[in-house]
Design a protein around this nucleic acid. Structure first.
Lengths: 207, 207, 207, 207
DNA sequence: TATGAATGAGATTTCATTCAT
DNA sequence: CATGAATGAAATCTCATTCAT
């Protein structure tokens, strides 16, 4: 557990600014440290290295995000897709919580999702997509099994997971106000749900 | 007009590999040149600089892509959206041509769309989104004017332009076979068209 | 405020040698650093850049020189030129102080006056000429106003300012011994004063 | 004898511009050649190297200047300084011819006197000073021998030679019009002659 | 707890020069 | 007569990282 430390906080704060402005790779430790009134050595004492500093900046937000995502996927797995209203409700609730979370850690989320190239987290969005894809696959499979002559279109499923992640990233970068964001994401989610139901199943043709 | 030149070709070929592997910024001229059996000076004789080399790698693909996009948007602007079958046909044709083009310059397109950060073309995908957004806005406006009490949801329009570009980028990165790609993109496009018609218009509420 | 530091001193010392030998532009940081037993990175830690190193070498001498020059011009401006003996005394005193100063920072002055091409101080001699020209113009104007039918010959005034600066630069490069220098500059100054009185004013012809 | 050659002329012309603009060291052969519509190889065919090109640019002007200077010094050596009017006349005539020459090869002279640092001619002004110094020394010696208890002040003699050269360089850089130049140089030359007569001899004190 | 100093490897770029053709 | 191609050496500068103190 990190000791409460003034320099640590200062460094994290300045790193945040620098990462947002320049991204991980182009961020300069020297620049961060001189902004913080410290020297580069301090980074290597307080954190492991540049990636360690990056982690310290984003880990809080990342953990909460991961937790929410896991909860969502767990709920999802327990749910029967035919119980449509329940599903829709769960999704709405998830979306609201997600927007809350994203905007309560606006800078960190921005860094994590858009400015992490070169860091250990550069493939995080892809990992989210993978998690959703995997989770939704189970539901889709059940769904497909209940409809004769249909099978899951794996590509569409994956792409829908992809644009679901993209939808929130895009929201974050195009709308900085939390309340407006909540309004704007609604039709997007509607669209995703409808598309899911309509395009994830395809006719099971023989090859 | 570039003269056919062995070293030039070699350099372009090696640069292509390096850009794909590391992206523009992290690509090393030294590494490219030593792969090509040349010195860095050769780059500055044959091209302007690092960006010039990048341009030489991608310009062929880029020009064709731009031309196709312009043609598409011109067609789009001439079309009445109520002539649904025509529109669908035009879109299908565009999509097919685009897939052909993307896969006939697979590496270059990959570089342009995914590996150009730091180069003069780093905002190319955004510019594509902008062009589509602008072009589609006109159609959407006509559409909205013909339906009382409706107006264009600018955010949805923009996001749909965004994921349209994304759809092809995603295709390229997830399916390397041209023919399979053509199959896979079909339901994606269906989804985009349907969503467009359903979600771009919203009720015109008074404030 | 620069901390006393061994490497810093060493670097300044070696840079001094290199600048004297090759001038600013042709001086090589690599060469300076290897002479100092350090790497080029050290320069960028201890100074801003090549110009920063140059500044560190000459700033002490430069500040003193500027201060002396300002004092001289201030005295000059307060003085009535008709009070010839006072003027001559002031000039003698200034010349002596200047020679003292130049020879107490012999290398730095040499660099500043003869080896600064390409650096931020490359136009320093010209700036000195400008300052003298401007300062002397006021005296000359008063002088001219007191003699009917005469006006200031701007070109001669400027040239005399120019060779006054030149006189000291020339002295520095041709006489390395401080005491001999003081003897040698005397007739030069006599000549400058006499010429000033005789040639700065010309007949005010109607055009 | 150089063959009359279009490329040669073009190259010389473009080099002239580049040398004036950037000086010898900072002039770029590539830049010169591309301006001339040729390649750098051409320089090495038509001239020896960068210095050879420089020489081709300035040699015409340089030869004439040297010739004039030799004539002047020869006249000077034949003359009895006591024949004051003759001397003054000769000097006037020399000055007029020199101004004519300088302004009839304005660019070349500028390059030679102000932009030659780094080239084989970088010490040309110093060599002129040396020639004048040497030539005038003879006259001064005769003069001194004719006046008991006097001897030549070598330093003043040298400095006067120095500022004589400087006077013309300064003229060139501060007055681009030939006729105005001729007016402006007159009092300067008066000053030089008077100073020469007054300050070159000093009392021969016993050491 | 953190500094100050320095490294070493790397980056891109520029240059005069060479030479086969 | 000149090109086009390429070299090789050098330039300044930036960076993450290390470590004794």
């Amino acid at each position: 557990m990190p000791i409460n430390n003034e320099s640590r906080e200062k460094l994290i704060e300045c790193a945040k600014k620098e990462f947002i402005e320049k991204g991980f790779t182009n961020a300069s430790l020297r620049s961060i440290c001189s902004q913080a009134g410290l020297t580069t050595g301090a980074v290597y004492f307080l954190f492991k290295d540049k990636n360690g500093l990056f982690e310290a900046v984003v880990s809080g937000a990342l953990n909460e995000l991961m937790a929410l995502l896991h909860t969502h996927l767990e709920q999802e797995s327990k749910t029967d897709i035919s119980d449509f209203y329940y599903v829709a409700g769960e999704h709405d609730s998830f979306a609201k919580q997600l927007v809350d979370l994203l905007y309560s850690h606006y800078d960190e989320m921005m860094i994590l999702l858009e400015k992490s190239q070169g860091s250990q987290f550069e493939d995080l969005p892809d990992r989210f997509v993978g998690m959703l894809d995997e989770g939704y696959l189970k539901s889709a499979q059940k769904f497909a099994d209940s409809v004769p002559g249909k099978r899951v279109n794996r590509y569409m499923l994956h792409w829908l997971s992809h644009i679901q992640v993209d939808a929130f990233t895009h929201l974050l970068t195009h709308e900085s106000d939390r309340d407006k964001a909540e309004e704007k994401i609604k039709p997007v989610l509607d669209m995703l749900v409808k598309s899911w139901l309509e395009f994830v199943l395809e006719d099971d043709k023989q090859c």
